[in-house]
Amino acid sequence: MDTEITLRVDGAAHPLTVDTRTTLLDALRERLRNTSPKKGCDHGQCGACTVLLDGRRVNSCLVLAVTVGDAEVTTSDGLAADGQPHRLHRSFVEYDAFQCGYCTPGQVCSAMGVLAEARAGWPSAVTGDLDDADVDLTDAEIRERMSGNLCRCAAYANIVPAVAAVAQAEGVRR
C-alpha cells in the first residue's frame, strides 16, 4: 500500500512514495541510493545496517520507513561532513579495523552510539557496579557494547582499539 513520506537523511529531506512494507534500510539503499548501510542478515542479527535515528543507533532493517516520521537519519556516509572522513573513519583506517569493509559503516554508526551511551553513563552487561554514575569504556566494555555488530572477516581485534582511540581522544573515561 503506497504511502507518502519524507525521510530526513544526512541533512537533506527526501519526499518519497513507499509501499508500507519498505524498511528504512531498503528505502535508503534502493530508493535514495545511499548504499552506506549494508544488508547482512535483514533480521537484526548482524548490525551491518546500523544507522543513527535522532542520534540513537538502530538496525534499519527492522525499522519500517513509514514509522520514521521526521526523525533525523544519519548514516556512516553522513558522518563524513563535507567529504572529510569522521574521526572514527580515520581511526578504523589507522587501526586496520576491517578487511572487506562490508560491516564497517554499521560498525562506525554503532561506535557513535557506544560513545554517546558511555558519555550518558549507560551501563552494560559487563559494568560491575550499576550504581556507579560514570562508565569506564574499557576494552571489555567496548567488546560487549559492540556485540550487535558482527564482522565476517573477524577484524574485532582491531575494531576494539580503533574505537578505544576515539574514546580516548574525546575524553570518554577508559
Binding site: 537484526g44 548490525g47 535515528l53 538502530v58 527492522l62 552510539g113 551501563p123 552487561a125 550487535g148
Partner: peptide, 16 residues
C-alpha cells in the same frame, strides 16, 4: 531488571 535487559539483544535492538 537492569541486568536482565542488558543481558538481552544488542545496543541497537534495545534502543528500538
Amino acid at each position: 531488571l537492569s541486568q536482565a535487559l542488558l543481558a538481552g539483544a544488542s545496543g541497537q535492538l534495545r534502543n528500538r
